[in-house]
């Protein structure tokens, strides 16, 4: 009997409402403003963020088109032409082995981009998976994952990286791995705490009350609302990874010294401090501009992704 009442109610309700809705639904709804469109708009309204975006884009272009931009072979030594001041031929001068500084800085951006992006991508994959598991399931899973994260969090990055590089040998890959291993814990923590606060929201309860599956709750409700914190952190930490990678090379445990890389160049330049300052000023500026670019983008992303700041 109740079933009957229910089925009778359905169409009844529909007709009652269609009549009222008809005059309103006649005109089409205005174009859909997508979430991304709105985020882009807010990002572009932020001047610093745009400056950051320009710097970062420039870095990517330089890294991709390095052979076209470089004026010389970055490896070519010319012992008759060492420690030259910047000139028309060598824009940023030459180093102690007569290599063209400008070309080496241009090629150096490749290492910065590869190491920065790859290490943080890796850290994000590990951190997001573990952080999401920890935040969503809580209890024992949470305790175990967070204690492991604490260990990596507490370990000094440079010392940890030295250990990994000693085991794996020098090169780009060990640098990427060691930076990722000591960065994922922050991503995991950020995502976890964000999920912990989001999953208590009433809209998650509402989805559960509707009978939504766990997958749906995670992908439609929890993730879109907790990932913002991670996304802006990612941009910051690419900058940090570039610095960390340069530090490793500066200390002589990063990529091999003959490779054009900013840390290597600063390291070489420190020997002629006060004499040939152009040797370290240019690569340092490259690092500073890169880091600033990523920090500005991170700042802009954080503000643009926060729906409360609209």
């Amino acid at each position: 009997m109740t079933e009957l009442a229910k089925s009778a109610k359905g169409p009844d309700a529909a007709t009652a409402t269609t009549a009222a809705a008809a005059n309103n639904t006649a005109e089409p709804a205005p174009a859909r403003i997508t979430q991304w469109g709105e985020i882009r708009h807010r990002f572009m309204a932020n001047k610093l963020a745009v400056v950051g975006l320009v710097l970062v884009t420039l870095l990517f272009i330089v890294a991709a088109a390095a052979p076209l931009i470089a004026t010389h072979d970055p490896y070519a030594q010319n012992l008759a032409n060492t420690l030259q001041e910047p000139s028309g031929d060598h824009w940023f001068g030459t180093d102690a082995l007569g290599r063209d500084q400008f070309s080496r800085i241009i090629y150096g951006s490749r290492i910065a981009v590869i190491v920065g992006l790859a290490s943080i991508f890796l850290a994000c994959v590990i951190g997001c998976i573990l952080g999401a598991l920890s935040g969503y399931f809580g209890k024992a899973v949470d305790s175990v994952i967070m204690r492991i994260a604490d260990i990596f969090f507490a370990f000094p990055l440079l010392i940890g990286a030295i250990v990994i590089i000693l085991v794996m040998g020098r090169g780009v890959l060990p640098v990427i791995v060691s930076l990722a291993v000591f960065s994922w814990a922050t991503v995991a923590r950020l995502l976890r705490s964000s999920i912990l606060s989001v999953r208590e929201m009433d809209y998650v309860t509402a989805a559960k009350a509707l009978g939504a599956s766990t997958t749906r709750i995670i992908t439609r409700h929890i993730m879109p609302n907790s990932i913002a914190a991670v996304m802006s952190y990612v941009s910051f930490s690419v900058g940090t990874a570039v610095v960390a990678e340069a530090s490793l090379s500066f200390l002589g445990i990063g990529v091999s010294p003959e490779v054009p890389e900013w840390g290597n160049m600063i390291s070489a330049g420190k020997d002629s401090l006060g004499v040939s300052d152009f040797l370290w000023v240019y690569p340092s500026s490259a690092i500073v501009l890169t880091v600033l670019g990523f920090v500005f983008v991170g700042d802009g992303l954080r503000d643009a992704l926060d729906p409360k700041l609209r």
Partner: peptide
């Protein structure tokens, strides 16, 4: 659950801010 639904107290946390 189709037949029992709920209206929440706080209209600010009960709607997902990232959904239309």
């Amino acid at each position: 659950r189709r037949n029992i639904q709920m209206v929440f107290q706080d209209p600010y946390t009960s709607l997902n801010p990232r959904m239309t």
